[in-house]
Design a protein around this nucleic acid. Structure first.
Length: 645
RNA sequence: GCCGAAAUAGCACAAUUGGUAGUGCAACUGAUUUGUAAUCAGUAGGUUGUAGGUUCAAGUCCUAUUUUCGGCACCA
């Protein structure tokens, strides 16, 4: 006699075990029709699952987040169902839910092309429209093995083999198609109304590059056709922000076959880059760093000693001359230790903070290159802080503070924090790693940051905190990082020392930190974040002066000269074109201010100010305009909502 | 690196079953002297990523290669 408590607190009593679906029918036919699954005492279950004891039950419909999730998961099954009809020899691996959608990994001799997706999608929708019922059968282990053996589903068998403790498995019957899953799933495929298979790509079985590469079919699905439409439109809009497209359109940088993964910065891109770099340089000065420059190429022996050669040589560019081997630096730390070691340090000198806008080269695998986000040559706003163990917390905290104030100035407020611990390939003893990890995590906790753990993702010399930002389509990129290193300074590595108050030699702890990370990547993120509509302090060209006719050109040039003298980045457009044409071009170039100058302005000694977004701020003289511009520049990127559109 | 796809004028794109490589913008020349998102006319621009091959004939088919794109693995 189960008593079921509903979320509103009301209770219903049943004479026998009752399923979620039966409960929904008891409440009303409409609800039953909308029922996807249930949450019984907090656990998600299929709508068909019987419950014989007292419980709290929530009915899940497509309107619930869980309902949408379940529907997407069932979409993966539907994909399997359709795919096996079209490609009977395909073997199904795994088909989980991801953000906005789902994928299924399959193994097939036949390569599925993007064109084939439309065909599969069509079959999926046809199958969904038959409104067939999904039947779940809890199946004993031996029988499940028998079923998948008969069906030649090798990957399902491997999954079963990897769960030796399980005695039974949930098999979902989609007409003739059978999939194995914990569930829950839709009771009926007609809930699926809006889906699209988006792309197909390779993916290693179980994410292991030593295993076979499967074909992964990605799809998205929504509760309504409008939801899908909105999503596709949003993606289309997001792709317009792509820094590779905008970089070309705005004349910021380009890439060339002669140097794959290395940017050619054009003058406007260079300006943007320098504004970012100089901003950071100012922060360094305020935070008591000393800036240095170290060689790009250093003797291979030094890299062997530092541990880089052993752990990192596959990613290093090398060169050789006069029978001596060199490597191009992939990191700045060894160079900074050379500078640290140039004189004997006292404990009174610590912490020593050595910073460099360090150009590093890393021979990244060809398949990883991605615009400015993943390159082979990039400049880190790098620094190494040499300190005592007692100083770690204060120094790490200062770095965290610098990350947050910097990101706020650039207009970012959505920052993901990750804490990465010891990787398989590493230097240093476990005792040292214990020390480093706990020191870093403790600071992270004290800073009250919301972070997630990435076990095994640390640097080879120490654990790290990562600060990640998202690109236009939601891909996450690591930018800032703080890494704790007890190893590199040891005698057997690069042997950095200081004399302690006990008059003995000690090895300092080294904190590796970058705030922006790579200047290249950070600029790429900035381009996408602002869609090229940079706040005035960052805009490569801040002001364009447009003359109406040739007779106005002299005044324009004088006015432009005055603005330049005041430190603004100014262009004059004196071309023999209509002012509408000029405005269109500079609007497309996302210039924050366009100054229009004709007879009226010259007569009054003013300029007519058109702000980005088409707002006419009226005519003003040089002093008023300077005040306006200075005020705008001083805001940096902090007030995101006030960026002109 | 792995799987799949793509590469045509400075840029964005066309080019039937293999049959004379085009259009728009940009560039250049001329006219126009212009008031807040495109003035008009004309001219020029290409070994179709590179290297081979098949064919009477290749942008199109085949092979190799480079780069790019989407993922995967990697990411100090």
């Amino acid at each position: 006699m189960p008593v079921i408590t509903l979320p509103d607190g009301s209770k219903r009593e049943f004479s026998a075990a009752v399923s979620v679906m039966e409960l929904a029918q008891d409440i009303g036919a409409g609800l039953a029709k909308a029922t996807i699954a249930g949450r019984v005492d907090g656990n998600l279950v299929d709508a068909s699952e019987k419950n014989s004891v007292d419980a709290t039950v929530q009915i899940i419909t497509i309107k619930d987040e869980d309902g949408l999730h379940i529907m997407r998961h069932s979409c993966a099954h539907l994909l399997g169902h359709a795919l096996k009809q079209l490609y009977p020899d395909a073997k199904m691996a795994i088909g989980p839910v991801i953000d906005n959608g789902f994928y299924y990994d399959i193994d097939s001799e036949i390569a599925i092309s993007e064109e084939d997706l439309a065909k599969i999608e069509k079959r999926m929708l046809e199958l969904a429209q038959t409104k067939y019922q999904v039947v779940k059968k809890i199946t004993p282990r031996a029988e499940a093995i028998q079923i998948f053996t008969a069906r030649k589903e090798d990957y399902k068998l491997e999954l079963i083999a990897d769960m030796p403790a399980e005695t039974e498995f949930g098999l979902y019957y989609h007409q003739e198609y059978i999939d194995m899953c914990r569930g829950p799933h839709l009771p009926n495929m007609s809930f699926i109304k809006a889906l699209k298979l988006t792309h197909v790509a390779g993916a290693y079985w179980r994410g292991d590059c030593s295993k076979k590469m499967l074909q992964r079919i990605y799809g998205v699905s929504f509760a309504s056709k409008q939801g899908l439409k909105d999503y596709l439109l949003m993606m289309e809009e997001a792709e317009k922000r792509d820094h590779r497209k905008l970089g070309k359109l705005l004349g910021l940088y380009h890439f060339d076959e002669v140097a794959p993964g290395m940017a050619f910065w054009h003058t406007k891109g260079t300006t943007l880059y320098q504004v970012v770099e100089n901003y950071m340089r100012e922060q360094l000065a305020q935070s008591d760093y000393e800036e240095v420059r170290t060689p790009l190429v250093m003797d291979r022996a030094m890299w062997e000693k530092s541990g880089h050669w052993d752990k990192f040589k596959d990613n290093m560019f090398t060169t050789e001359t006069e029978n001596r081997d060199y490597a191009v630096k992939p990191m700045n730390c060894p160079g900074h230790i050379q500078i640290y070691n140039q004189h004997l340090r006292s404990y009174r000198d610590l912490p020593v903070r050595i910073a460099e806008f360090g150009l590093v080269h890393r021979n990244e695998p060809s398949g990883t290159l991605h615009g400015l986000m993943r390159v082979r040559a990039f400049t880190q706003d790098d620094a190494h802080i040499f300190c005592t163990q007692a100083q770690i917390k204060t120094e790490v905290q200062a770095c965290i503070d610098l990350v947050y104030s910097t990101y706020a100035d650039f207009g970012f407020d959505n920052i993901q924090v990750k804490f990465s611990t010891r990787p398989k390939v590493r230097v240093g003893s476990d005792a040292v790693w214990d020390l480093a990890e706990s020191a870093l995590e403790e600071t992270l906790k004290d800073a009250k940051l919301d972070y997630s753990l990435l076990p095994g993702e640390g640097a080879f010399y120490g654990p790290k905190i990562e600060f990640q930002l998202k690109d236009c389509i939601g891909r996450v990129w690591q930018c800032g990082t703080i890494q704790l290193d007890f190893s590199m300074t040891q005698a057997e590595r690069l042997n950095a020392v200081y004399i302690g108050s006990d008059n003995e030699k000690h090895h300092p702890v080294m904190i590796h930190r970058a705030i922006l990370g790579s200047l290249e990547r950070f600029v790429g993120i900035l381009v996408e974040h602002y869609e090229g509509k940079f706040p005035t302090w960052l805009a490569p060209t801040q002001i364009v002066l447009a003359s109406i006719a040739g007779v106005h050109n002299e005044f324009v040039q004088q006015f432009a000269k005055k603005l330049k003298k005041s430190g603004f980045r100014v262009e004059s457009d004196l071309r023999n074109e209509k002012v509408g044409f000029k405005i269109r071009e500079h609007t497309l170039q996302r210039v924050p201010y366009i100054l229009v100058i004709g007879d009226q302005e010259i007569e009054n000694g003013t300029v007519n100010v058109r702000a980005r977004g088409g707002v006419n701020l009226g005519s003003m003289n040089f002093e008023d305009l300077s005040r306006l511009l200075l005020n705008d520049v001083s805001k940096l990127g902090r007030v995101v909502t006030q960026v002109p559109v």
